[in-house]
């Protein structure tokens, strides 16, 4: 059973393991600096499907299938599935895995869904209610733009601090025992609303919550940033990363810059004019954690990673009603 340590952190006694993982990405993500790390790069944005929503589901299914194979289990062995995406009713996930007959829990954690899924999967495995659990998520640039912003072919300019939703999916198989990357503890963050109203500036909306979660976790576990090989945030991008480092410096006099990395800054070639402040979306951190990070952890190149998923609670409706984006 997990033990509550400090105020918010849950520490595992048995330490469940990530037995296998996989990620698939779109063309632009494949052209990024981590292109060689992904299990599959799709050159076609529709992935041979009729709609972008179906394309996202296909990617989601592919990531789950590959992750199951890498952990050497079949979908009938799965006791619980935790997954979600950015689309309404999490259709990207549900339509993707519906044929696989796994007991499914739909999650909405915006772009932090991979971290949220891994946390729940590890909790389920730790408590013994499940032996084999899958955590998965996906996002697709086109389906996300359609739901949250403007039509793809609409000619508008985005500001330099905007981020690009990744076309990517990642999945991980968590087991209660065996070999793999250990999950030692999890912390569920609290919602922070700092009155950011610009739906293009997601990094600014997310940085305060990431900052608070990092502070709480370090305090609960009585550790320092230097104790980790990497503090990996989800998708703060250039603006959000700078804000996070400044916030931690000013609030806690803590400097994480030597160990901090952000998936949003790792996914794309940042010199590309379409990318602006970096990548975002569920698939952004999922694809990097489920490939590059896992591989480096398994190889022993890095030993201890503090993965901080980040997500903005952006809706297509509430900003129009004058609400901010927490």
């Amino acid at each position: 059973m997990p033990i509550r340590k400090g105020r918010y952190t849950l520490e595992f006694v048995n330490a469940p393991v990530i037995a296998g993982s996989a990620s698939v990405v779109g063309k632009k993500e494949g052209e990024g600096p981590l292109g060689g790390e992904f299990d599959k790069i799709y050159d076609d944005t529709t992935i041979g499907e009729q709609t972008w929503e179906k394309a996202e589901s296909a990617m989601h299914r592919d990531a789950v299938t590959r992750a199951l194979a890498s952990a050497d289990v079949s979908s009938s062995d799965v006791d619980l599935f935790f997954g979600g995406d950015l689309l309404n009713q999490c259709v990207g996930t549900a339509f993707g895995i519906k044929e696989m007959e796994m007991p499914c829990v739909g999650l909405y954690g915006a772009c932090s869904t991979m971290a949220l899924g891994l946390a729940f999967a590890a909790l389920a495995a730790e408590t013994g209610i499940a032996q084999t659990v899958v955590a998965a998520t996906s996002s697709h640039f086109c389906s996300a733009e359609k739901q949250f912003r403007m039509p793809l072919e609409y000619g508008n300019q985005s500001p330099p601090y905007a981020q690009r939703t990744a076309t990517a999916a990642g999945a991980a198989v968590v087991k209660s025992s065996g070999s793999g990357v250990k999950i030692q503890s999890v912390i569920i963050g609290i919602i922070k609303d700092v009155n950011v109203k610009d739906s293009n500036n997601m990094g600014a909306a997310m940085a305060p919550a990431a900052c608070q979660t990092i502070i709480d976790f370090l305090r609960d576990t009585n550790t320092k940033p230097e104790d980790y090989d990497m503090i990996l945030t989800g998708d703060l991008g250039d603006v959000g990363s700078r804000l996070l480092i400044e916030l931690l410096q000013r609030q806690e006099n803590t400097d994480i810059s030597s160990v901090h990395a952000d998936c949003g800054l790792m996914l794309y070639d940042l010199n590309n004019s379409d990318i602006n402040s970096g990548g975002s979306g569920c698939g952004c951190s999922a694809s990097i954690v489920c490939s590059y990070i896992m591989r480096r952890l398994k190889a022993g190149e890095i030993k201890k990673v503090f993965f901080v998923g980040t997500g903005a609670l952006l809706s297509a409706i509430t900003p129009l009603q004058g609400d901010s984006i927490p």
């Binding site: 300019q157 500001p159 330099p160 601090y161 950011v196 500036n201 600014a204 603006v239 700078r242 804000l243 400044e246 916030l247």
Partner: peptide
Amino acid sequence: MVKKASPPSP
């Protein structure tokens, strides 16, 4: 802080 960190449109 946000204003300072967010690059303005050219």
